[in-house]
Simulated scan of single mutants.
Amino acid sequence: MSITLQPARPSVAARLAIRRGDHPGPTAGLAAGYVQANLAILPASHADDFLKFCVRNPQSCPVLAVSEPGDTALPALGQDIDIRSDVPGYRVFRDGELIAEPDNLDEVWRDDLVTFVIGCSFSFEEALLANGVPVRHIEQGCNVPMYRTSIPTQPAGPFHGPLVVSMRPMLPAQAIRAIQVTSRFPAVHGAPVHLGDPALIGIADLARPDYGDAVAIRDHEIPVFWACGVTPQSVIAATKPPFCITHAPGKMLITDLLNAHLAAL
């Protein structure tokens, strides 16, 4: 009797490629249809306050899962996830200062670390494309541009700081459709927080993003801004916790959840 091996689902195949080091770059466009996520990893002593921060700032920090202290698996999000190796790039902070950008966490992992998995706007981009709305950074093969704003987050315990937004340029009619589409995805940032003049939210120059890459803005297009899961990195810079790990911007955890399952009815 012959046995036919079933191919791994695209999300699993992408994680294995990342784990092997075969995909060190941004994850936008990988494993189409599957939820991608931001990370914030903190000591258990700070986990309760950070969870409160996420609850008070659900548009920028929509929580998809929280691990037990020291647990590197996330069974609710995917098969055989190892949070130490399944993201293309990490950032390690001590007292708010970036001290390392490793491609795995083997040398810095601790038994008291709690992983927060936070929804990512990459998940609603599939729906934007399906509705004829362009996604410029995918067209250009680069990372989404992200900016620190003058909009404050709601503090919790020691955690506070400015909201970070991601930006996608589009024509006004496309922006209206984008609002309609992304409003159905509250678990991955939902509707835009601003569109039009970036100066109104404290952004001085769209050509100089704080994270990611600048993208072309064509004639008659307007910038459209969504709350971004990189916000915890601006909060880390403001609050300077003794130890913290995040993903590198644009380099996400790919889960086995389907984007379609996150859409509100």
Rank of each mutant, 00 (worst) to 15 (best):
Gln6Lys: 15
Ala8Glu: 14
Arg9Ile: 15
Pro10Tyr: 06
Ser11Met: 08
Ser11Lys: 04
Ala14Trp: 03
Asp22Asn: 13
Gly25Phe: 06
Pro26Gln: 06
Pro26Ile: 04
Ala31His: 00
Tyr34Ile: 03
Asn38Thr: 03
Asn38Val: 07
Leu39Glu: 04
Leu39Ile: 11
Ala40Glu: 01
Pro43Trp: 06
Ala47Tyr: 02
Asp49Trp: 04
Phe50Ala: 05
Leu51Lys: 10
Lys52Pro: 00
Arg56Cys: 13
Asn57Phe: 03
Asn57His: 10
Ser60Phe: 02
Cys61Phe: 07
Pro62Asn: 05
Val66Ile: 14
Glu68Met: 10
Pro69Asn: 09
Pro75Gln: 11
Pro75Glu: 09
Ile81Gly: 05
Ile81Leu: 08
Arg84Leu: 06
Ser85Asn: 13
Asp86Cys: 10
Val92Thr: 08
Val92Cys: 06
Phe93Val: 05
Phe93Gln: 02
Arg94Trp: 03
Asp95His: 15
Glu97Pro: 01
Asp106Thr: 14
Val108Trp: 04
Leu113His: 04
Val114Pro: 04
Thr115Glu: 10
Cys120Leu: 02
Ser121Cys: 07
Phe124Cys: 13
Glu125Arg: 14
Ala127Trp: 00
Ala127Tyr: 01
Pro134Arg: 13
Ile138Ala: 10
Glu139Thr: 13
Asn143His: 01
Met146Pro: 00
Arg148His: 10
Thr149Ile: 08
Ile151Lys: 01
Thr153Asp: 05
Thr153Pro: 02
Thr153Leu: 07
Ala156Met: 13
Pro158Lys: 09
Phe159Leu: 08
Pro162Trp: 02
Leu163Gln: 07
Ser166Met: 09
Pro169Leu: 01
Pro169Trp: 01
Met170Tyr: 00
Ala173Asn: 12
Ala178Tyr: 03
Gln180Thr: 11
Thr182Cys: 10
Arg184Thr: 10
Pro186Ala: 13
Ala187Glu: 08
Ala187Asp: 14
Val188Phe: 06
Pro192Lys: 15
Val193Arg: 08
Val193Tyr: 01
Asp197Trp: 10
Asp197Leu: 11
Pro198Asn: 07
Pro198Leu: 12
Ala199Glu: 12
Ile201Val: 15
Ile201Trp: 09
Ala204Leu: 11
Asp205Asn: 12
Ala207Met: 11
Arg208Gly: 06
Arg208Glu: 15
Pro209Ser: 07
Asp210Cys: 11
Tyr211Gln: 06
Tyr211Lys: 06
Asp213Val: 04
Ala214Leu: 08
Val215Ala: 09
Ala216Arg: 09
Glu221Gln: 15
Ile222Cys: 03
Thr231Tyr: 11
Pro232Cys: 12
Pro232Arg: 05
Ser234Thr: 12
Val235Asp: 03
Ala238Gly: 09
Ala238Asn: 08
Thr239Gly: 11
Pro242His: 11
Pro242Thr: 06
Pro242Asn: 09
Thr246Met: 13
Ile254Gln: 03
Ile254Asp: 01
Leu257Tyr: 05
Leu258Pro: 07
Leu258Trp: 09
Asn259Gln: 11
His261Val: 07
Ala264Asn: 14
Ala264Tyr: 05
Leu265Asp: 15
